[in-house]
Design a binder for these strands. Structure first.
Lengths: 255, 255
DNA sequence: CATGTTGATTTGTTGGACAATGGAACATTT
DNA sequence: AAATGTTCCATTGTCCAACAAATCAACATG
């Protein structure tokens, strides 16, 4: 083995001290992941945990804050903490912010969406039911209403795509696409603020949604995928038409 | 508007009390997202923060734990906290665990990977450089070594795919695929534990990697995508061959 | 120049305390 | 009887004061 990197010679790995609050967090997490604590179970009270761990309540609390943030525990109507399965909506905001901080570009987001959205539509076509069709129609109706009133349809567009993904019923897909989907909000805002697009943009967008819904209703996976793809391509073209740079970082959308 | 849902009539939204530690977290997060605190900047000390916020140090600490967990701040060689841009490797473990708890199936993971991995390979082919080729070759060499020695190549397989994704240099893609990629670890372990696959599985896997690397070296996006797709299909077929149920939940991989 | 020593700074942890909130059980009002 | 007020207890949110342990920098020592 020639040119073996010298780090192979490093005999010892970096050793970092583990604060007690992290151990608390890990211990509880382990109980959850191994199923000894299941979703819906209430956590012991802070004082009980402190006793069991032999630590001060403050220390335990810091561990709980971490667990809470990672979505493994949450409050269900009241103060008490309950174990829960983290929902994609818990994790998406952090991921979105991470992407913004990494100065992700429109092009990067678009590329991934180009991979995920059409296949999501195809999958949705195969398993959509009446109630879900109604949801999509309601979204469409609402969008036309807002559009006629000259109000923003951005939130409704993001919702439409999330609805399609939920109909596709793939938990990994939902988790993967949501952070990206959220970031189209500022991108669309920028797009529709441009005089070239403030009128035609929303109209074309609604038309595409119409086509997609129709394909889904007909359980036509091919058409659904096709129209979703066209919809995405159209989005990108609009961006270029306004001579926005695809490689600019996505702007931060404040709370 | 017929059949307006009665929740539209609810005059007031749910109002939930915001504990001070969350306000702390939000305040600091805002400073980061608006750029007043940039990556690499040190945070004020806990006592300073406590003074500025007019809160007790421990309350501030709970807020810091949340920020730390979400990856916006971290320790860089020492105790002091620094602002940083969250890396996908910070967020992936949480997401993976979320998927496990939601009882994600092999089929779901596979479907998303089937959308992401081939296009990642195609994109990687367009921009791979000499050093990156060397990394892939090193990974391949190492894999053959381990395979010959009868040791597990699973970690190296996961690493291979992450390498390809990093070469594709799409930050959104990296973030989206990593949690899923991590979950193939237990799936592969299960697969290679089966007598039908413990020999042929790793061999076919290494062969596919060989083809992919060659395509990448030739900057042939089409071939890279094609072989990656075949590689994924092969993976699934192996799973079916062992008569594993594609709809079984992925097992938890303990620390 | 590598290795102690010292001291100031900062984080990790503890203890005890109290206010505020939620929930349940019960009393009161209409 | 249904809605509203009262009481009490368990639990969480917050504070104050303090100490142990680790880090860093400067300096002293061999």
């Amino acid at each position: 083995m020639p040119a073996s990197p010298d780090r192979d010679c490093a005999m010892f790995q970096r050793i970092e001290p583990v604060p007690a609050y992290r151990t608390v967090c890990d211990a509880i997490e382990k109980q959850i992941m191994t199923g000894r604590l299941g979703a819906g179970d209430p956590l012991p009270t802070e004082t009980e945990l402190a006793e069991q761990f032999g630590l001060a309540r403050h220390t335990v609390r810091e561990g709980l804050r971490i667990l809470e943030e990672s979505g493994l525990v949450g409050r269900e109507a009241g103060r008490r903490l309950f174990v829960k399965a983290p929902h994609y909506s818990d994790l998406a905001p952090r991921a979105s912010r991470a992407l913004v901080m990494q100065r992700v570009t429109f092009e990067e987001l678009w590329e991934v969406s180009m991979s995920l959205e059409p296949s999501a539509a195809a999958r949705a076509a195969a398993r959509i039911d009446a109630e879900q069709i109604a949801q999509l129609e309601e979204n469409y109706r609402h969008m036309e209403e807002e559009r006629a009133a000259g109000r923003s349809i951005i939130a409704l567009d993001v919702e439409f795509h999330t609805l399609v993904a939920e109909i596709a019923a793939n938990k990994a897909l939902l988790l993967a696409r949501e952070p990206i989907s959220q970031l189209f909000y500022p991108a669309l805002a920028k797009l529709f603020a441009h005089p070239l697009n403030c009128e035609t943009g929303p109209r074309r967008l609604a038309q595409a949604h119409r086509r997609i819904i129709d394909a889904l209703k007909a359980h036509d996976a091919g058409q659904a995928e096709l129209w979703m793809r066209r919809h995405m391509v159209d989005f990108r073209r609009g961006y270029e038409l306004c001579s926005f740079n695809l490689k600019d970082a996505i702007a931060f959308e404040g709370a």
